[in-house]
Design a binder for these strands. Sequence first.
DNA 1: TTGTAAGCGTTATCAA
DNA 2: TTGATAACGCTTACAA
Lengths: 347, 347
Amino acid sequence: MPEKSSAPTLNDVAQAAGVSTATVSRFINSPEQLTESTRKKVKIAVNKLGYTPNFGARVMAAKRTNTIGAIIPTMENAIFARGLQAFQEELRQNGYTLLVASSSYRTDIEEEQIRSLVSRGADGLLLIGHERAPGVRRFLETQGVPALVAWTYDAAAALPSIGFDNRKSMRALVEEVLKMGHRRIGVISAATKANDRAQLRVLGVRDAMAAAGLDAENLPIVETTYGVDAGALAFERLMRENEWLTAIICGNDVLAVGAMTQARALGLRVPEDVSVTGFDDIELATIVEPALTTVHVPHRDMGSKAARMLIQIVEGKCRGKAVELDASIRLRGSLAPPKPPTGLKPE
Amino acid sequence: MPEKSSAPTLNDVAQAAGVSTATVSRFINSPEQLTESTRKKVKIAVNKLGYTPNFGARVMAAKRTNTIGAIIPTMENAIFARGLQAFQEELRQNGYTLLVASSSYRTDIEEEQIRSLVSRGADGLLLIGHERAPGVRRFLETQGVPALVAWTYDAAAALPSIGFDNRKSMRALVEEVLKMGHRRIGVISAATKANDRAQLRVLGVRDAMAAAGLDAENLPIVETTYGVDAGALAFERLMRENEWLTAIICGNDVLAVGAMTQARALGLRVPEDVSVTGFDDIELATIVEPALTTVHVPHRDMGSKAARMLIQIVEGKCRGKAVELDASIRLRGSLAPPKPPTGLKPE
DNA sequence: TTGTAAGCGTTATCAA
DNA sequence: TTGATAACGCTTACAA
């Protein structure tokens, strides 16, 4: 039981071991430089006192922290979880620690978190999406902290990025929907404000519509917050305002599951009465009944590649570029051709 | 474009503004002490240089960080996500920053993360479950860093905790199952090694069995890792080895969903042929068909209460105690009475 | 109201 | 191989 003393310092250990602080520091950082006997002495003192280096002091003296920070919009759902887990595992294997903060999809909080992580000595940052206030990039530049953007790919953006082409992928998915014969399409999108992924996905829908000669301008679309419930409410509204829709394209799987749930609640069968598609291919997509047609995102691959790339950048071994990963379409039960015009129905 | 200069320091700002470092420090920490005019001068310099305090230096000089660390077993699923989100929101409102690390359910990694967060100056720690190496508590004690355990309640444990009684809750759930007439019960549990929640839940099942005069010793039980797939595999094994089971009690909702999926794949109807129950009541529980009978855990409430309590402890306003929250049973479609003996069946 | 200067706990350079 | 000692960037008495 320690009296109430504050944490032991290098100095305490040095005194206890009868050596200088420099020697203790070496014991921590490069024990091979010490004699077997001094090493033993110091070791005993360290253990007895329960010494751990003070991080702050260490950073100040050594400049490097071996810490990477990541700021994700939310921890509350699976979208970022799997990729982040892979990111963290890869970092760990390379001797880096991951610190995570979440911004609740708010740019002001994100900025605060960026400052917080940087001032805590993060050697590099993982961010989601390209959209943020211009001051942020300047800040990162003056602080000399590199950042990598994930979950979206944009060769033209200022920051290096790793991810997939949200717009192209959504277009490809909608082209499948159109190929099946759907013409009356509605969209449930996540809030597009300050969320380039959501924006690009909507653009992808419009691309496909326009290319098929359909009216991309007057696309029925409802924007909503994140969550199964939100998806359900959005579905109801969309269908009430546009009763003739045969396919609902959702900006992500969570919204899509909400839409499917609500469809059932309204007495609509999926996919017989209405088709539903998602985006992300989270685990949930294959659990629901019918399984969700969606865009498969290589979460784990993206996470570990992001880690490797960010480490390279942090260690000055490369400058960072835009890397595009493939996002493929997964056709599953929630998408089927629309009902034939009533007159033709056998029943 | 800054040349390549490293981040600006207090000194740089002081020079640029033509004041002392102390004045700049005051501008950051207690601007009201300064004259309007000096405040303006300093402000301009700070903005021009894009200055942010160096956290390490600050900690060393000031001792407090306003940072709370949390270490959770995994970020990859919803179990901890919602509570943690609430935890973070409450912290933010009180001026604290949350740093999260995940241990992949490994005590060695958890210990490493504890040291990492402590040495980074965390003022307090949120941990999950009571089970960890004895050295850890000593470490926290000598470092003077308070910790609060969540997701489980244990008045006898050394650390204060906030959560529910896993054992009692599981017992209550199984009593419902027994009340419905089930006698042939199997269990799918998460790995119980170093996971007191999992252990207690299994004990809860045995409690209920024993109280009903059933054989609690020879309970068919399969332990598995976390995940829907794992739950599916475990279900198959459990049913293969014990064909006569009518109800499967799962240690958490994710395993339960896996079990339900696999039941369907094996041609078994839920709940007609076999009942399934979960634990946690994550969102998924109400999305699956049929909805999952489970133990409802007050995730958000627990998260925000944990935050308030930990802040109290950190600020020396209370010593921390064990707080028990209610976990209630949610009866849903996945649980129904067992099929009557074949002879009585109408068909 | 502002400035001076002494720490805070490390690391790293130089000598010994 | 080890030991002094000067940074590192900030806060905070204390002095002016």
